[in-house]
Simulated assay, not measured.
Amino acid sequence: MPTPDREASLWTLVREDIACVKGRDPAARYALEIALTYPGVHAVLHHRMAHRLWRRGWRFPARLLAWFARLVTNVDIHPGARIGRRFFIDHGAGVVIGETAEIGDDVTLYHGVTLGGTSWSPGKRHPTIGDGVLIGAGAKVLGPITVAAGARVGANSVVVEDVPPAMTVVGIPGRVVRDPRDRRAAGDQTYGRINLEHHLIPDPVGDALALMIDRIAFLEARVGHLQGRVASLQAQVAALDPAAADSVCA
């Protein structure tokens, strides 16, 4: 569950949002540059202000501020969404976060991510994202599901079911393909410094095809071996009785 932002001042939250960028973006240099030039940071700042208005019942000003943020950042965050601390949207383009979405602390989203709904029904319609989750570019997380703490969602995946803690999900629909907790224990991934090694995300379809190719090659070798034994047996029988060799062939 996200940390309610009423527990910290807006200034404290914004400072944390700016500071966390250095740990997750190698291109980030210093705080002033981040504050002035990162649209993802601008979107989060506007959302934090809009969300406070939304909680106080000032719904139209909140929606107006969210609309303005979308206009200038290309990030669409509903003011009702609950977002935890040290939230980073890298590149900040095409991200959509729905009204009932809940985002924990130390979460990283790349461009094109959608935290969307799958129903017209009122109530909880959008995902809950746990602490330390990383969601790759273009991924879609849909419905009132939970992506538990420490999980990773591969780029362009479509996730429609719950994701267990510290798992990696890829594909359409998303499937759990790896448990990276051994690498987290070694310090590769902590909530302070998110693991950004997208190239290490596995390809389950490619792995399955590789296994099938290996199996086919093994079966072809077995068939070739058996054909060789039959030919050898036929030659031995033919040396003794040509008629019997014909029956062996048949």
Rank of each mutant, 00 (worst) to 15 (best):
D106L: 01
H225F: 01
I18C: 08
W11S: 10
V113R: 04
N156Y: 11
Q236F: 04
L36N: 08
A166F: 12
V44K: 10
A155L: 02
Y110R: 05
W58D: 06
A231E: 13
T12M: 00
E33Q: 10
V159A: 01
V160P: 02
E102G: 06
S119K: 03
A62Q: 05
M1E: 03
G192E: 15
H91E: 06
G228N: 13
G123F: 06
D182C: 02
P173L: 03
L142C: 09
G150A: 13
G143Y: 13
P2H: 05
S157N: 11
C20G: 09
V237T: 14
V160I: 15
T146L: 03
R193H: 15
T37D: 06
R184L: 01
A250L: 10
E99K: 05
Q189P: 00
V133H: 08
D5G: 05
A155W: 08
T146V: 15
V176L: 02
V113L: 05
V230K: 13
G136E: 12
L53Y: 11
G171P: 00
R184K: 02
V158A: 08
T37E: 07
R181S: 14
Q227F: 00
G187K: 12
L45M: 12
E220G: 01
I34C: 06
R152V: 09
A81F: 01
V44E: 08
P2Q: 05
A27D: 06
H51A: 12
L32H: 06
G80N: 09
L45S: 08
Y38I: 02
V14I: 15
V141M: 02
V113A: 03
V159F: 04
G98I: 09
A238N: 08
T190W: 05
G174K: 02
R56P: 00
E7A: 02
I77F: 03
Q227V: 04
F87A: 08
R181H: 09
H198C: 00
A28H: 13
L233C: 07
D90F: 01
R184H: 09
L142R: 10
A185W: 05
A221L: 03
L226F: 01
T12V: 05
V205Q: 13
W67L: 08
I129Y: 06
D179F: 12
T168A: 09
R193I: 06
I83E: 02
L200T: 13
P173R: 10
N156S: 13
H51Y: 12
G174L: 02
I77L: 08
W58I: 00
R184I: 06
G57A: 01
A93N: 10
R63P: 00
F60I: 12
L53C: 05
D214M: 06
V96A: 11
L71R: 14
V107Y: 12
G143S: 13
A151R: 04
V170Q: 07
G98S: 10
Q234D: 07
R184P: 00
P204M: 03
K22T: 11
A69D: 07
